[in-house]
Design a protein around this nucleic acid. Sequence first.
DNA 1: CTGAAAGCGCTTACAG
DNA 2: CTGAAAGCGCTTACAG
Lengths: 350, 350
Amino acid sequence: LTKRVSIKDIANKVGVSVASVSYVLNNKEKAGRVGKELAARIRKAATDLNYQPNLIARSLQSGRSWTIGLIVADISNPFFSNIARAVEDEASMHNYTVLFGSSDENAEKSQSLINTLIKRQVDALIIAPAEKTENQVRALRKINFPLVLIDRYFPAVETNSVRVDNFEASYRAVNHLFANGYRNISMVAYNTNLQHMTDRKEGFLKALKDHGMKAGKMSLLESSYEHLDTDMENIMRSALDKKTNAPDSFLFATNSLAVKGLKEISKRNIRVPDELGIVSFDESEALDFFYSPVTFINQNTTAIAKEAVNILMRQMENGRNTKTKIKPEQKIIDTTLVVRKSSGQKKMAP
Amino acid sequence: LTKRVSIKDIANKVGVSVASVSYVLNNKEKAGRVGKELAARIRKAATDLNYQPNLIARSLQSGRSWTIGLIVADISNPFFSNIARAVEDEASMHNYTVLFGSSDENAEKSQSLINTLIKRQVDALIIAPAEKTENQVRALRKINFPLVLIDRYFPAVETNSVRVDNFEASYRAVNHLFANGYRNISMVAYNTNLQHMTDRKEGFLKALKDHGMKAGKMSLLESSYEHLDTDMENIMRSALDKKTNAPDSFLFATNSLAVKGLKEISKRNIRVPDELGIVSFDESEALDFFYSPVTFINQNTTAIAKEAVNILMRQMENGRNTKTKIKPEQKIIDTTLVVRKSSGQKKMAP
DNA sequence: CTGAAAGCGCTTACAG
DNA sequence: CTGAAAGCGCTTACAG
């Protein structure tokens, strides 16, 4: 790698001090500084030498890296890659670049990513926190580190967060299924204690109750994240192959669960929606291409990402101007229930 | 944000020089340096103060940022988000972190991303280059910047690259369709001059020729990237609604094209594969869930990403040890044709 | 209008 | 065994 040209090289070439070069290149000649003619020569030299400022040096000096860290469960999951794209776009509008990492829902990995990103001096973090990382978030709050949680959140930790109303979204989905004639509704969720998932489950259970439907042992089915494939195979088999009192509809709590569940449904000769209704959280191509396009709860990933970045920008700006401690913001983004064929009117058994 | 603790704070607390602290924290006490007892005290102080080294300062000093830049067309495209994930994992094994950016197939945006990443002192770049960015790659080569192209490449530029044999993959796909009775095969591709796309088109045309099939004006259909939706609607309409001599099969050159194409096919009452055969490049959930699961050419994204990172690691290592200029590596990763229902035996018209 | 100097947090030859 | 000092590339108050 050939040696990069620095401000010093320009100074030498023009025969002037590095200070003058720096002022000119930062457009700070005002302040009664550097004549027009000299400024022009400096700029020309910079162009001629193809000078690119070393932002690392500038960061060390200024204490700002103009970098945001993004930690999600898995960047290859379409929900998160859509968020990543929107974070990238919004951050770049504010001259920030994004460093990312995938936690794999693992607390240790999450801690290690946070440490790495902080050592790299990111100015702020956007985190979709994994289970059991509550204390990691608390520690960040304690040092007053600019931070916003997305998707998931910890009710007991006062911090910025952007998410949807998961309880309400589930509740509404069940209402919809009920209105279309389904009476034996099952939810398939992850067996995690993360609050957003708990909210989805509780919204589901509350809706069952409000409609006078009982929650039996087939109502709330849970899969682990680590053994998704085998868990989902078992769950779907025991539900779909049940002789009596089998579920007549499913609410999937995430797109990853829906994908696995739909594959099991496809294997069997079940007519959707005639015999089985389906609703899922999250947008995904799988839902579009399932033979009976799947009704889904659309989370506006772009809005979530945008809002998260903007909260950080605003607070960092304020933090620089005032000494008063900043009050955390909790933002709820609206969801939309996109109704399609999979949850159409149930055909009653003859 | 509370002030971060530095090596100086530790030195003050223990009553020792920053040099000693630095040596200990870098496990360089050997070299006849710092007694065991002192080293222990320094380490304890570091832990007590919750010291995290400032990697930006270290980078400025060492000239290495331990950061890799990744530029793709769009991080929210599953092909690229899978690559991003694999790059992340492989890079992290070598203690590198990843900065990413999406070029949107736009040469100006690509240049701006390259500039940003270089100013941020990334040690190397992994780029899926957009059209008309050949000179950007040349400029990087000229300053001997560690670089590897993935997915796409420029035949006229000698540089590292990792990709598949696109010509061969297309050729094989056509062979497969031909063997299953299809004689009026269309390819749907992007209207770009990028070589990987040209290779796919040429493999297709060569196979037609070798099987004695003529390439008519319905054979090679091209969509723009910018107006994908409307272009694909038009392309598919004119092909599918043709009264005579309509295509009996499609080879889609990317998953994004396939998704749009399959939606148009779904709208019509066409039986796949009886009336229409389909093969696509790239893995995707859409292909799995199409009512007739789609045969696809699987590019091993993990292998591509891993290989790209490893080429960079190897060359940076060598670059540090020798003065001899490094020879570029071109690596071809094998593809697999995953045969499924959509390209099954064609039913002859009665 | 302009230069010399200090400093951001670190590493590492150089003296003792 | 240990400290003082230079330097990575930049910015910015301080003197002139």
